[in-house]
Design a protein around this nucleic acid. Structure first.
Lengths: 283, 283
DNA sequence: CGGGCATTGTGCAAAATCTCACATCAAGAA
DNA sequence: TTCTTGATGTGAGATTTTGCACAATGCCCG
């Protein structure tokens, strides 16, 4: 039976493609990954990778072995979840994955409540566009803007929010309707409903700024660059921004609270889920 | 994520029950198992075992974690099979599990043929009563006397053989029918068909020897201790043994060739399966 | 074409791990 | 009881593994 640690390193290498990336992910030196893969090759008597100049290329055998070792990794994640779920009481770390806008505007400002109520809980708040995989234990709970379909996950809709166009009051006053400029996401967000809506509404007008960051869009809109589609929870409290009403109104989005089945009973996780629900409900 | 090697050691400990047994199975020192389990506990922050005077007792958490880690072990076995299956050509070791009688009388004497035909193949012949688990990779192929039902295994009936009562010629001549003594398996084999049959037929007569080893039974019968139920392939070629015909005749048994689905295509394994089929067919 | 930039390969010293030997302890047999 | 057997605990030395620093290489981009 091959060394399980060797397999772990090899699986990550197979997924990441390079020694360095695998090493970063595993938190070890790249030399260690290289040596462990070599050890696995010598153990199994199979050539698993072609060592090319700048990249490790899996051989057919390598792909085959990596594929059969994947279920091991999934089982390992299940062990990790079982460990997390077995932790009694309300002490420990919980990681939350959330879209950056929600994290900044609704979660972070409320964290002090959670700490007051459960002083033993440490939060790791991951505000990333990329949806972290709960199955891979990249986070314990997540907020998502649409219902996820991954197996093993449990999702509950805990709220929704609307969008409007916002701009600086002076800008709206001075600019004739046909000359209004727009601020949009970059292409990577082309499939988001609010972006589609904007593209439709802005058909004839100029899109003067594209940025992937919502905070940037708001900042630009505040200074009179143009109109941005912002969620109400971001635009309404801002004294420098004014809604610009349109028909049709922009789409609204749902907020889903997602957790893995294995973790939903853990007291630590339940407390955080309750907190997140309050954050969204009370916005 | 916990260290996979720690998990491997812990799973074996959980199954074996003692440090020493786990250490033997893993081929390491017992101190290594103890330290790895301790490391796993410190990693997870959970108490997994109660260290009692002479034994490691799993805690509830320990049982839970061990249970979730079992699938990892099964996946590891699958990797092992994939490795074995990926070996090209006809070089390497193949292990055969077989009932001892078949191994001694039909397989071992023919091994020279296999070696002549495929000089690159090394055979490990495990003649044990205990049925080795092909799923756990305790053997690559197996001969069984009944169709196995484990998942993932493929079985083919490759032959059958009959039993008869055998005794020394002189003994049979001298002894009146009602005084014939019998030689039987010990209690551990009470569920074997030939043993049941013997118990029925021998209802009134004395059972003078009980032994788990068929070779012993044959030896005793040869020297006139009594009558033993022996397979034909064992009794017929023996010049010192004579059949004692009865009605009803003893049951016959089937011979099944068993292999894991993952291995059946490997050239190495196929060659050995072909060899085993010939051994049984040509008896 | 040349300069970054990221990747893999290598030798060495340090750190972690394992084996080994011995000690201790409990249970069961004589 | 005393002896034997098989289990776990512990410390020292040997071995293995790892990280680090540096070299070499190929790619991308200006």
């Amino acid at each position: 039976m091959p060394d399980w640690e060797d397999l772990r390193h090899f699986v990550v290498l197979a997924r990441e493609g390079t020694l360095s990336a695998a090493a970063r992910l595993l938190g070890v030196d790249h030399a260690t990954v290289a040596r462990r893969v070599a050890a696995l090759e010598s153990d199994t008597g199979l050539k698993l990778v072609d060592r090319r100049a700048r990249s490790y290329q899996l051989t057919d055998d390598g792909r085959r072995i990596a594929a059969t070792a994947m279920p091991m990794e999934e089982a390992a994640f299940a062990v990790g979840r079982a460990v997390q779920a077995a932790k009694p009481g309300l002490r420990g770390e919980v990681s939350i994955s959330s879209p950056p806008s929600l994290a900044n505007a609704l979660i972070a400002p409320q964290l002090f409540r959670l700490r007051r109520r459960h002083p033993g809980i440490q939060i790791k708040l991951i505000g990333e566009k990329r949806t972290a995989s709960l199955n891979r234990r990249e986070a314990d709970v997540a907020l998502r803007l649409s219902r996820p379909s991954e197996p093993g996950l449990i999702a509950r809709k805990i709220g929704s929010f609307g969008f409007s166009l916002y701009g600086a009051a002076a800008y709206l006053k001075q600019t004739p309707r046909h000359a209004l400029a727009f601020i949009a996401y970059d292409d990577s967000m082309d499939d988001a409903p609010q972006q589609k809506w904007l593209k439709a509404i802005a058909a004839g007008n100029e899109i003067v700024l594209r940025t992937s960051d919502l905070e940037n869009q708001a900042a630009a809109a505040r200074t009179g660059v143009g109109l941005a589609v912002l969620p109400h929870f971001l635009g309404d409290p801002d004294p420098q921004l004014t809604r610009y009403e349109t028909t049709p109104t922009p789409p609204s989005r749902e907020v889903w609270l997602v957790v893995h089945r294995d973790l939903r009973q853990a007291p630590l996780v339940r407390a955080v889920m309750e907190f997140l629900t309050d954050c969204i409900k009370a916005k």
